[in-house]
């Protein structure tokens, strides 16, 4: 088992003919992901390598049986791409695009509310179930199949964490980068719920950062609903208030979103919080190793 992506994943890549889209599609194919289609409006009928390109996601679903989408289109068109995938019946949508206007995401979030569609991102590295499918831009080779679920707001910091886990021989069930924007489709709680229900996952690594209160909400949820061990790390303990630290969502504003508050909330919920990122793998081994 694993969550959201697996051997049954049939991927359509929106923006497949662009530079990023084609590069990362090839990386996903190389990893073993079943990429069944691409979409670039106006380029229907062409092929990217052996992958058929369609004009619309609707066609990609009807003719190639796509059930999962990965989006690489530029920020100005990304909200449209997400809704196109949703309307075409895709149930797992992974939006890699960085820089989407927040008010566009307000509309997208409203559209998806109450549906069974799962949007991952935007502004995220994607999702991987090691050994099965990679839907994203993460380096596949640092992963290893196993029992640990990883959920993170970051990109390279997630790779760092995964790499340390792999070095400790702690494989991963599924690793998800949920994205660094203020409004994202899938939050910590959504992923924790999935990991809790997944029989392959026996423990969770949660990587948060400054900004918002998602980590505090996750802490309360873990205390109430998760009985698998969780190890957490929060980036940005030294970040100054009022400054956007790279990610659009990583900003301490109006006294909320501070790392110290998040760490306190997690620890109060009985979660092991790693202070020094260099020790993450070793601490996970201690807490979750068998």
């Amino acid at each position: 088992m694993s969550v959201l992506v697996n051997n049954d994943t049939r991927l359509v890549v929106q923006g497949i003919t662009g530079k990023e889209g084609s590069f990362h599609t090839r990386q996903c194919v190389e990893y073993g992901t079943n990429v069944v289609a691409g979409v670039t409006p106006g380029k229907g009928g062409q092929h990217m390598d052996d992958i058929p390109v369609f004009n619309t996601v609707k066609q990609a679903v009807a003719q190639a049986g796509a059930n999962t989408a990965m989006i690489f289109v530029p920020p100005a068109f990304a909200a449209d791409a997400i809704l196109e995938a949703a309307e075409a019946g895709i149930k797992v949508i992974v939006c890699i695009t960085e820089g989407i206007p927040t008010l566009d995401m307000v509309k997208v979030a409203r559209y998806l509310e109450g549906t069974d569609i799962r949007l991952i991102g935007p502004n995220c590295p994607g999702i991987i179930s090691p050994g099965q499918a990679k839907v994203g831009i993460m380096p596949g080779q640092i992963h290893q199949p196993g029992p640990i679920g990883v959920v993170s707001r970051s990109g390279t910091l997630t790779y760092e964490a995964v790499y340390q886990l792999t070095l400790q021989d702690l494989g991963q069930s599924t690793c998800v980068g949920i994205g660094g924007d203020p409004i994202i489709g899938t939050n910590f709680i959504d992923m924790l719920r999935l990991f809790q229900a997944d029989p392959q996952t026996s423990g969770v690594v949660l990587i948060g950062e400054i900004g918002g209160t998602a980590e505090e909400e996750a802490a309360a949820f873990i205390k109430a609903e998760v009985n698998k061990p969780v190890v957490a790390f929060i980036a940005g303990q030294t970040a100054p208030p009022g400054k956007r630290m790279g990610h659009a969502g990583a900003i301490i504003s109006g006294g909320s979103g501070k790392a110290a508050d998040k760490i306190a909330a997690l620890e109060a919920a009985g979660i092991t919080v790693v202070r020094n990122i260099g020790e993450l793998g070793a601490i996970c081994k201690k807490v979750m190793g068998t």
Binding site: S152, R153, S154, G155, T156, L157, T158, E160, G180, I207, E209, I210, F233, A235, G236, Q237, T238, A239, M245, G246, H247, A250, A259, R275, N276, I277, G278
Partner: peptide, 15 residues
């Protein structure tokens, strides 16, 4: 490289 890792690196310097 990467915003999250950059923040974690700042934290590490301080630690």
């Amino acid at each position: 490289n990467g915003a999250g890792l950059a923040m974690a690196t700042m934290d590490l310097i301080k630690l």
